[in-house]
Structures are given as C-alpha cells and as structure tokens.
C-alpha cells in the first residue's frame, strides 16, 4: 500500500507502523473514571468499510498520522497529521 503522507507525499506502507483505531487519540479525562478508561483501552471499532486509523511513520519523519482507509478495498481516502487532528479537536 501507499500512504499519502500530508508532508511527504505517497510513501510505501512498509515505512509505517500500524496501530489501529484513531479513537486512541481521545484519551478520557482522568476524572472520567474507570469505565471510560476501560472502553478507551480495550474497546476498538473494527469496521468492514471506512475506518480512521493511526499509522506511525517510523522509518520516516516519525509523524503519527490519522489515515482514513476503506478496510474492504484498501482505498485510502485521506491522511492527516495526528497533531493537527488533535489540535482541531481541542
């Protein structure tokens, strides 16, 4: 696969480490309690279809990316720097 890095353009997926569901960006507030952390740590969506997921450009510029990918076709619909996504959410 080729990952469209927002700064570097198309780069081979072999340069990246895959983590999974981008919901990991949303770490609960420490006051949210154990149940919220349980969801955060253990529960992930694994959709057959469009999925937002985290990829780390380990053999590249060390950016964490949020890649939107269709898990059925491997079509990639977009990629953003995770810190931009997070910044936007904050």
């Amino acid at each position: 696969m080729l990952i469209p890095h927002p700064l570097l353009g198309l780069r081979d997926a072999a340069e990246f480490t895959y983590l999974g569901d981008a919901a990991l960006l949303n770490r609960p507030d420490p006051g949210a309690g154990e149940a919220a952390f349980c969801d955060y740590v253990y529960l992930r969506d694994n959709p057959a279809g469009v999925h937002r997921e985290l990829w780390y450009h380990e053999q590249g510029d060390r950016s964490w990316l949020v890649v939107t990918r269709n898990t059925l076709t491997h079509e990639i619909l977009g990629a953003e720097l995770a810190r931009d996504v997070k910044g936007g959410a904050a």
């Binding site: 983590l19 770490r27 780390y56 060390r62 997070k86």
Partner: peptide, 13 residues
C-alpha cells in the same frame, strides 16, 4: 514510539 504517540496524539499542546 510511545513517547511520540503521547506527544503528538495525546498532548500536542
């Protein structure tokens, strides 16, 4: 890798 995750994905501020 985890430190970068914390820096970029959890607390970019």
């Amino acid at each position: 890798r985890n430190m970068e995750f914390a820096r970029q994905c959890l607390w970019p501020e």
